[in-house]
Design a protein around this nucleic acid. Structure first.
Lengths: 190, 190, 190, 190
DNA sequence: CATGAATGAGAGTTCATTCAT
DNA sequence: GATGAATGAACTCTCATTCAT
């Protein structure tokens, strides 16, 4: 039931944004009365955070398998590939995690933030490992990580928020792959 | 007057985001009655589109001065710098143009879409000019342009939607500058 | 209209107390929509305060004519008579001013509190005048005033909140008159 | 168990007033489910009446010990002292008994009304005893009793409903004591 | 051109209450 | 005897919108 609420909410949040969704909407979607939702979540923002937590967990599960890859460079590349893959396959989740505007003041104390940070740290550490093993000339780990993240996030978020309409659907996919290859190459020459 | 409404609306956007602004709020800000706004805009979404057009125009004005720079590479770099600058200085506008989920079916017929496309085309043409003059080894103009755009959009949108909270304010600025320098360097080796 | 709202609200507040009355109730009573009320009053508590102000003004108008009576003792007696008379004739208003539980934290900054205080001060000054002219042996103005007030308020509030049911209606009136006479006599011997 | 519910309800009353207490609140306080309460009370108003009865009993227990005092005058004075003391110490109970607007048609058939009447009668009889023993010049027992009651009730109810805000907390206490002393003195000269 | 007055719908939230288990 | 799950109605309040004037 908690799960049923979360499922319905997820879809709605993704379609209409945090402010565009009402408790009533969610209740209607699952065909229960509004009050029922308050049996499972203290208020709207708690529901939202629960959703973000789900998303963060899913993302972690999607990404963390790469931890098994020994070579840091290969690990990094695979991490990137999967990051983008996650965004493309679960645009709603990605949106929730990295785009949706929501009561952000609260978020930092939340478990989902911790979870997100953990994955992020893993990413930075992988970059660090590459740096340590001289995969790059540059040794500015932080900036390298940030730059790669920006590129990946840019790709996914232009896609998620439908700002690629000037390209046909196939073109979009093609571009994504080519651009990923390109950034990898660019990174090699860092 | 139409302009006065738009100005007030824009400022409110800046402060509270799209969902946080009501017709009433705007009316209060310009010290007119709510009804008056309907003399100039059919409804809220028309006002919203007008706003998007404003944003697109502002962005064009912010970016197009670089058209005067002869050398395509310098033009490209300056374009990038200004793109990011625009996003940082007018996060609400940037949000409106590249992040906000709006009825997209409508948008494509709108002037603002044309306006946006024009600026985008200018960007792509500048990349093309660099390619033509062998600034890059790669000749895949489209992918180059897309990749650069992704990076810039990633930077701005992580900032605009407050996903950089794990860094201090100064750190954020510093990172932005360093990352921009880094992508420029990476591009040189393309 | 503002007045129409106040009239309806007054009756309802009196019948059911502050918490027992909803904006909806008031709206229904005047056959308007709930939202309309917010055109005239910021919120529920503002409406309540406006009502209290009305009540305070009415009470002042009922009492202040005695200011014309030169002899302080006569003035005091007449003040008391009218105080009780006010409570009996306008139980709803009296209730609002001296019994109804409502957001009291706010009240002290309100005009109605000032108005109420003014009348109260006039009462205390009248007692003081009696003291000054040796109408009492006691010179403890404050306590005398308070004691008289307690008696009057007790009478009215037992009546207003229907705690005199063990007496017949006529008996109640008779008791009131006799008790007033008695407290006057008691006061003379102070 | 019934008792446990009542105890919790009473405490909540004390803290938040009648309208501020919900069945849910009470259930939470005793760590049972809301439904459980309905096993012991038909509905909220039945609980409310039970509470009034409790209050009446508490008041009786607070006052009746004075029945042991032989001298009627001393008994009367002590009764008054305790009456006020009860109101100050249990403002919520006092409120329930003498101020709260409750369906009065119901109340008269209730045990609590009987209980209240009994205490009241005891009070009147004590006044009568004083009259019989010539403690007063006046022989109008009813009016004397009523007058004294009005004073005491006025004191307590101004306090309970927070109409003494113009005085500091200590001042309020001081005034109460002085006024009680004053009414006693005034009564002596009746 | 502009407004004042009004509304119906809807927001988040809490409530007293029911009832199958 | 007690609960968990649920509801429908109510709450205060805000909103986009309309329309006679």
């Amino acid at each position: 039931m908690r799960q049923r609420i979360l499922d319905a909410a997820l879809q709605l949040f993704r379609e209409r944004g945090y402010d565009g969704v009402s408790i009533r909407n969610i209740a209607e979607a699952i065909e229960y009365s509004p009050g029922t939702i308050y049996l499972y979540f203290k208020d709207k923002s708690e529901l939202f955070f629960a959703l973000q937590f789900e998303a963060a967990a899913l993302k972690r599960d999607h990404l963390m398998p790469v931890a098994g890859i020994e070579d840091p460079w290969e690990r990094l590349v695979e991490f990137g590939r999967r990051y983008i893959d996650f965004g493309m396959k679960h645009p709603d989740m990605y949106d929730l995690l990295f785009i949706t505007r929501a009561p952000m003041e609260y978020i930092e104390n939340q478990d989902c933030w911790q979870l997100g940070l953990a994955t992020h740290s893993f990413f930075v550490e992988t970059v660090q490992a590459c740096v340590d093993q001289r995969y790059f000339k540059s040794i500015d780990t932080e900036t390298i990580a940030y730059t790669l993240w920006c590129h990946a996030h840019g790709m996914v978020s232009l896609f998620v928020r439908e700002r690629m309409r000037m390209y046909s659907e196939e073109k979009r996919e093609e571009l994504a792959q080519k651009s990923f290859a390109m950034i990898v190459k660019m990174a090699e020459s860092l």
